[in-house]
Measured scan of single mutants.
Amino acid sequence: NQASVVANQLIPINTALTLVMMRSEVVTPVGIPAEDIPRLVSMQVSRAVPLGTTLMPDMVKGYA
């Protein structure tokens, strides 16, 4: 089972991601792979992401 990136806190719209905002977790459906966490740092979210939400490619500007 592949771990995905999950929000560790509420991430407001247009916030630049930092390591403390993200954790890896095995979830369904699968989201952005956990190994991409270093690449996500400083990228902005395109919408508010609630705590515990799996990050999907369309939620991060410039990821897809």
Rank of each mutant, 00 (worst) to 15 (best):
E35K: 07
P29K: 05
T54R: 03
E35G: 08
V5Q: 00
I11G: 01
S42Y: 13
A34Q: 06
V30P: 13
A7D: 01
P50I: 08
A48W: 08
T15M: 09
A3C: 10
L40Y: 02
S4G: 05
Q9G: 05
P38Y: 10
T18P: 00
S24I: 12
V26K: 05
V49K: 00
V20E: 07
L55P: 01
A7H: 02
V30A: 10
D58K: 09
V26S: 15
M21W: 02
P29R: 03
L40W: 02
D58Y: 12
M43A: 06
P50M: 15
A7M: 04
M59C: 05
V5M: 02
V41H: 05
P33Y: 13
R47I: 15
V5K: 01
M56R: 11
V5H: 00
D36S: 14
V27S: 05
E35V: 10
D58Q: 11
Q9M: 14
V45P: 02
M21F: 04
Q9Y: 12
A7P: 01
L10N: 10
S24P: 09
G62Y: 10
Q44N: 07
Y63V: 03
N8V: 10
S4M: 02
V49P: 02
T53L: 13
A3K: 06
Y63T: 03
Q44T: 14
T18S: 08
I32F: 03
M43N: 05
M56H: 11
G62P: 04
G31S: 03
M21Q: 04
M59I: 06
L10V: 10
P29V: 07
N1L: 14
P33L: 10
A48S: 13
Q44R: 11
L10P: 13
A48H: 12
P29D: 08
R23C: 04
V30F: 10
R39G: 10
L17C: 02
L51Y: 14
V30L: 15
V45W: 00
D36V: 09
N8P: 01
E35T: 11
E25W: 08
S24F: 11
T28W: 04
E25G: 12
P38V: 13
V49Y: 02
L10C: 06
V49D: 02
V60C: 02
L40M: 09
A34T: 12
D36A: 12
V26N: 11
K61R: 12
P50S: 13
T53E: 12
A48R: 10
P33A: 13
G31L: 02
S42N: 07
A64E: 09
R23K: 10
V49A: 07
N8A: 13
P50A: 13
N14T: 05
S42R: 08
P57S: 10
Q44K: 09
K61E: 07
P29W: 04
T15Q: 06
M43L: 12
V26W: 10
N14M: 07
G62L: 08
I37G: 05
L19W: 12
P57L: 04
S4F: 03
L40N: 00
E35N: 10
R47N: 15
E35S: 12
T15W: 08
M56Q: 09
N1K: 05
S46H: 14
N1A: 15
V30Y: 14
E35L: 10
M43I: 04
T53N: 12
Q2N: 13
S46R: 12
T18N: 04
M21V: 03
A16K: 07
L51T: 13
P33T: 12
